[in-house]
Amino acid sequence: MNTEKILLDHGSGGKISHALFADLILPLFDNPELSCQDDGAILDFEPGRLAFSTDSYVVDPIFFPGGNIGDLAVNGTINDIAMCGAVPKVISAGLILEEGFLLKDLKIILESMASGAKKAGVKIVTGDTKVVPKGKADKIFINTSGIGILPSGIHVSGNNAKPGDQIILSGTLADHGIAVLTAREGLSFESDIQTDSAALNTMTRQIIESGCDVHVFRDPTRGGLGTTLNEIAVQSKVGIKIYEPSLPIKGSVQGVCELLGFDPLYIANEGKLICFTSKQDAQKTLEIIQKNEFGKDAAIIGEVTHTDPGVVLLQTAIGGVRLVDMLTGEQLPRIC
C-alpha cells in the first residue's frame, strides 16, 4: 500500500469504489448501521429534541504535530454537538479525495477517525467518497455531520449569558493553531507544541449531569477565544470582561506568538471549551472540568457584566483595560 495512490476509479461507484469501502472503510468504522450499506443509515432515537450540526475540514497540512485532519473532522463535529448541551450519538463522513492521494495516508486518517469516534462513544453510520482530478482539490477534504440527543430541561446557548456569570476556559490557549503553523512549509520551528484536538462530550456531559447552572458552552475554534467571546457578547447583548493574568497559555506557545507577532486570543483551539455558569456554581463547575482528562489547566478567566453590551474588554496584568475586538482577516506574521 506504501506507494498505492487514489485513482479517479476509486470514486466511480464501481468495483474499485466498493473495494475501497469494503476493505478499508467498513472494517475501521464497523457498526451495524453502516454495515447495512443502504443509501442512508436508519437510526432509532427516543422522541425528544435533537442537535444537528455539520462542518467541513480543509486543514493544511493534513498531518501536524499530535494529529491529522481525521481527528479534527471527528472531534470537531462531536464538539459542535456537545456545545449545544447534547449527547453526540452518530456522525457522517464525506470524503473528497484528490487523484494521486496516497492510500497509506488515507488509511492513517481513517484510522484516526475510527479511533476518535470510538473513544468518544460515537458511531460513523453513513458516508460518501468522491475523487476529483489532480489539482482540483488539495489532497483530502472531509465533511462530517452529527446528531446528538438533548437531555430534557437543558437550554445552553450563546444567547443565554447573564450579567454576573463566571467564564471558565477548560485549558491552555492557542495550542492547535500554533501546532499547525509550525508544521507549515517554510516555517522551520522545532517545538514540542501539539494540537489539542479532543472530543469534549464527556466533559460537557459531566457538567450537565452535575446539575450546575450552565448558561453557555462554546468551543473557541476558528478566530480563537477573542472572536468567540465577541459572538456571545453580541448574541446575549451583554458585556464581557476577561482577566489577562488568568488566561492559561503554555510558555512555548506564548514564545511562538511573540516571535511572529500573533495574539493567542485569536488563534484556533480544537479541544477547549468555554463555559458560562452562574456565580454560585462556578467553583463546582471548574472542579468538574479540572478532573476531566482534557481540563486539568482549566481556569475562571472572566465574567459577564451589565455594562457595554456587545463589547469584550480585557483587564491587563498592569491594571490597564483594552478592547478585544473580533478577528479581522487572517493573522499575518509581522515584519520586525
Binding site: 480585557l314 491587563t316 496584568a317 498592569i318 491594571g319 490597564g320 483595560v321 483594552r322 520586525c336
Partner: peptide
C-alpha cells in the same frame, strides 16, 4: 510599530 501594538495590547494608555 511594535511599541504601538504593545502599548495598546497592555492597556498602557489607560493607566
Amino acid at each position: 510599530g511594535t511599541h504601538t501594538t504593545s502599548i495598546f495590547r497592555h492597556g498602557i494608555r489607560s493607566v
